[in-house]
Every structure is written in structure tokens, then in C-alpha cells.
Write a protein that binds this DNA or RNA. Structure first.
Lengths: 338, 338
DNA sequence: GTGAAAGCGCTAACAC
DNA sequence: GTGTTAGCGCTTTCAC
């Protein structure tokens, strides 16, 4: 296993110079650098991250904590982050919280990340005060995607605005009985989206002067199955809503299925709009409020890397734009789309 | 930053004993272990993976190389692998090949993985001879998911059988013009699935004594968009097929959309069957051949960990079962499902 | 622009 | 059951 000493011996230089040359530091003559690079290449030298990490205190690794990789949204954010990390020579350590209830505690409460990574990306989780405390004790840059947490570096969309856009779209079409499918607005799973989207929905109905009969807000757990169950309850009501705003495309897709099961036509009998622009949304002809998913990952990664490099870096809150994408699951009440 | 020496000093023992106690090695009295654990806890000791890695030559990290995390199939395999790795205290380093054409080369051809990870999981990629050479030179356990590579540890389904199941389902329903949507069977992207599934399709038609008019096999690139384009070509033919077997659910979903665009009813005008049982398949009512995705990840991870632990380990080829899931996109030609 | 030397924080071999 | 002693393979002062 050729090490840096072998290269040093080969070019008849000290390991210090070889190390500097290999890492592209200044203070090495171009001739030397050239010879070192050639030698390293020829000898098949591969640096040891453990040794470099131990000596320098930097691991060139970033932890990405994700609730559930199998959800397209998270996978897409991870992919965006991976791209920029890889570009800059950083590795991505994946912490998937799904499937193990104790995982969240292990990752956040024990400080196992401390000597393991240079920075942390947290996706769609709003750390509790205790968890925030731990995170800051890490003494490492942290960026949170999809949550609103003043004082922390965050990347997200304006969830309330997204919900407003979706709801207003339904209002503008002439709907008056508009139901909402969302998720729990409290508990450990409260990232920002559930409450902010609910708020946007309510406010928009308010502004439109629409009454909000009780029972038109259901919990769909941000999954397709949950959305289906929620929609089944909503659509079975005597005062059936003519439109449903689901706070995520996956729940909206579940709602579409519920409608079909009940023999209801979409959009003639019920309009459905979601949020995300999930990769499958277009195959369902789903009207939705698109958000830049991949881009959020890129921005978040760029952010922590900047924090690692710049001395005078301060946490920034980035808000990315959303856009209504009208497809074929929404129309005026009782009408086919024109 | 408290290190192992602080703990050693605290319990008045050597760092060697503390190290042994912390790692649960035998040869430490229970009393000592107890005191060490308590002390470590109290002092907030966190081990340094870099130091441990340097000293032991083990990183307790496994690389997972995936073509594209945003594809549900890969994300699900990753999730399965992550679960068992995490259980056993291993970290997962994600290498996503999508989005960077040079990534594959960098990961396989340079030996950057060598001192970085203890083992490697490769998903749905069939390494070229050169890449295989590099991989074995790593001197680390490697398991390949979704490819058939004698001599290597692999986990997969019987792709030819899966294709046979799907095709025979269509034959049994009475279809005679059955088209196929698959992917390139050569080039760097040739994992086993494309060619094996094509073979299964052809063989089944043969056995059924069905002629295979040319032009009924199309490339859908294993994506929904590709499947849609392929189906558009197939369904525009004068001798329109009455059924389509798509080698992945994502392509099948694209085919469903193509049918809808052309005003064709599914399954009355055209039946469609896929492979995978994608999480969205049931929302499309898609008939498919289900494979245990998550489980393949678990088995693969279990395999490399076994290789790491057992001295007398030999590469094993694991084949997991598939199962036909009949939903509503297939029927007798010209008929609604009964 | 380059080198010498001192670690980084652990683990492992061997001694007792 | 526990301690001593060498490193693991780099990076980083501090000299020159």
C-alpha cells in the first residue's frame, strides 16, 4: 500500500512538500508539484482519509439526515446536495431515520457526528430545542432544508405562500367547499410545512370570505396511503367538498385514488391540487404547486461548504420560489377542464 | 474535546483497557467495564473514527454506489441496506452516479474507495472487466445488487423468470401481439435486467408459438419518459399491439400515459404490465411482477458484513423470489377486467 | 521553496 | 485482567 512516504522517497523530497503539492497548496514550485503529481500517479498513491482526518481535524465528509430516502422529495434533495459536495471533493454520509424509531435520538442526541463530519444537512426536520442545542454544540455548520428556524441556516420555500397559491387556484375556479389534507402540526415530526401550509389554506379561505365548516381538514400523514384514507373520509361526507387541497403530491395522489374508488370523476366531481411537483405528478395529470427540490439540495450543500471556507460566514435563510402548474385534476366545480 | 486518555485518567486505568471496555471486547472485568462506561458517559466522550480507522485499518463505513437515488427502486435498496448497516454500527457513504458523467469513472477507476471504506455495495450496475479488476484490487468485500456476475457476491431476482411471468400472463389472457419496452442491452449501462428480461419475453413468445413481428421491441431507457415515448411509437403502428410488457414499472407508467394521450383505453384497447411493484404502481392500478426491493438491500448489506466478520466467507449468489400482482391494467384483448 | 519533527487519538502486540 | 509501547499515515508548526 503506497503511502505518502513512498512518493516522497520517489521524488526525493520530504513528505511535507509532497503533502503540500498533492493538496494544491501554495508555496510549492511548479516543477516540484509536477514531479510529485506524476510520481503519485505512477505509484498509484491513494491518500488515507483517516490519517488526513486525524492530522487535520477535517473529514471532508458531510452528514445528510433524512426522514426517509424512499420518498422522492428527500431523494431529490440528497441528489442535489451530493452533486455539489462531490464537485468540491466532499463525501456524503447518509443517515436515514425511517425504519428505526430510535434513530433520531441516536443521531441527534449522541454526539457521534462530532468527530465524524465537517458539516450537517438536516432535511425536513425541525430539531427540538434539545436537538438544536446538541447540533450547535457540534461546532459545525448545519443547514436545515424545509424548516423555518430563525438564527439557523435554512433553505426552503414559502410554505404558506405555496398553500395560498394552491387554495386560491381552487377559489378562483369557483369552489366554495374546499377540503384540506395535511399532517400533524405538533410533535417531533413538526417541520414547518404542515402548519404553514394549513395556515395558508385557512387564510386564503378567510380572505375569500368562505366559511370553513368543521371537519374539512384531515390528516394524511404526508403519505399516499394517508392521503387516500383522508380523502375517503372527506368524500364520504354528506356535504362533500368539491375540491381538495393536499399539502403534498403524494397525499394528492392518494386522494385521486380515493375519488376513483368512490366512483367520482376528477375534476368534474372533485378537483385535487397538491404541492411538490413530484416526478410522478405529470403522469397523474396532477395540478400542483411546484417547488425546486433538487435546487434546495444544491443550495443547502453550497451553504455549508461556504460556512466551512469563509471565515466571516453568517447563517442565511434562503427561500426559493414556487410555481403553480395547472394540469388536469382541477376545474370549475362540476365541469370538465376547458 | 475529551479523548480516550481523559477517560483513562478518570478511571485510573490505561487507555488500552478503556479502549477494550468501550468496544465490548472480552478480557475486561465487568466492574472495570462498568466504570469505564459510566466515566465515558459522564465526561461526554465521543470516539474519533479517524483515529480508530487509522490505528485499526477499519473505517466501519460501507460505500453504496447507486446510479440515481431519485429512482424509487434504488432509494428503497439503499434504505434496506442502511437499516442493517446502522444496526451493526456501520456508516453508509453514498455515491450517486447521476448528474455527472465522469462520476462512474472516478468511483470505479481511481482507488479512492480503498482506504475509505470497509466494503462496497454496487446497485444495478454491471462493472466492466476493468472496473471489476479495480474492485477486486480494493481487497474489500463487494456485493452487487441486480446483476448476475459469477464469482462475485450478488443479490438479485431471476430477471428472465420475472419477464416470463409477465409475458405469460399476457399470453394466458389471449394476447398475440405483445410488445416489449426495455433498455439498451449493451454499453456501460448493461446491468443484467435489460438483456435477461428481453430474453424472458422472447422465449415466452416463442414457447407460446407466437410470431414476433419486427419493431415490437422498443427502448424505454428504464424511465417513465422513455417508456412513454416508446409506447407512443408502438401504439401508433398500423399493427398496434394489444398488450405491452414494460421491463420496469416506471416505463409501464409512461406507457399508460401514452395510451391515454392516444385516446386508448387500458386495458380494453391495450394491456400493460410492468416489473418492480413501484410504490406508485397501486395508484396506477398497474399489474406488475413484484420484487422484494427493500429486502435486496438488507441481504446485500448482511452479505458484506458477513464477509467482514467471517474468515471463511465465500461469495454467494442470492436470488430472491418475484410474484405476479394482477391489478387493473391487464385483461383479455378487447375486454374490461372481470 | 523545502525539511525536520512533533503530534492527531486511537488500536494492537506483547508483556506481565 | 491490565499496562506498556509502538505505531497507523498523514498535516502542521517552525526552522532554514
Amino acid at each position: 500500500m503506497t503511502g505518502i512516504r513512498d512518493v516522497a522517497r520517489d521524488v526525493e523530497m520530504s513528505t511535507a512538500t509532497v503533502s503540500r503539492a498533492l493538496r494544491g497548496l501554495r508555496g510549492v514550485s511548479e516543477t516540484t508539484r509536477g514531479r510529485v503529481l506524476e510520481s503519485a500517479q505512477r505509484l498509484g498513491y491513494v491518500p488515507s482519509p483517516s490519517a488526513a482526518g486525524l492530522a487535520s481535524g477535517q473529514t471532508r465528509t458531510v452528514a445528510v439526515i433524512v426522514p426517509r430516502v424512499t420518498q422522492w422529495f428527500f431523494a431529490a434533495v440528497v441528489q442535489g446536495a451530493e452533486e455539489v459536495l462531490r464537485e468540491r471533493g466532499y463525501d456524503l454520509l447518509l443517515y436515514n431515520l425511517a425504519g428505526d424509531p430510535s434513530a433520531r435520538h441516536r443521531v441527534f442526541e449522541t454526539s457521534l457526528l462530532m468527530k465524524r463530519v465537517d458539516a450537517v444537512l438536516v432535511l425536513s426536520l425541525k430539531p427540538s430545542p434539545g436537538e438544536r442545542d446538541r447540533l450547535s454544540r457540534l461546532g459545525r455548520p448545519v443547514t436545515i432544508v424545509g424548516a423555518d428556524l430563525p438564527g439557523w441556516a435554512t433553505v426552503r420555500i414559502d410554505d404558506e405562500e405555496a398553500a395560498t397559491t394552491a387554495t386560491r387556484h381552487l377559489v378562483d375556479l369557483g369552489h366554495e367547499r374546499i377540503a384540506y389534507i395535511g399532517g400533524a402540526t405538533s410533535g417531533v415530526l413538526d417541520f414547518t410545512a404542515p402548519s404553514a401550509r394549513l395556515a395558508g389554506y385557512r387564510r386564503t379561505l378567510d380572505r375569500a370570505g368562505l366559511e370553513q365548516p368543521p371537519g374539512l381538514e384531515e390528516d394524511g400523514e404526508f403519505t399516499a396511503a394517508g392521503g387516500q384514507a383522508a380523502a375517503l373520509r372527506l368524500l364520504a361526507r354528506p356535504d362533500r367538498p368539491t375540491a381538495i387541497f393536499a399539502a403534498s403530491d403524494e397525499m394528492a395522489i392518494g386522494a385521486l385514488r380515493a375519488a376513483r374508488e368512490l366512483g367520482l370523476r376528477v375534476p368534474e366531481d372533485v378537483s385535487v391540487v397538491g404541492v411538490d411537483d413530484h416526478e410522478m405528478a405529470r403522469y397523474f395529470d396532477l395540478t400542483t404547486v411546484a417547488q425546486p427540490v433538487h435546487e434546495q439540495g444544491r443550495v443547502a450543500a453550497t451553504q455549508v461548504l461556504a460556512a466551512l471556507t469563509d471565515d466571516d460566514w453568517t447563517p442565511e435563510q434562503v427561500i426559493l420560489p414556487t410555481e403553480l402548474v395547472v394540469r388536469r385534476t382541477t376545474s370549475r366545480p362540476g365541469q370538465t377542464r376547458t
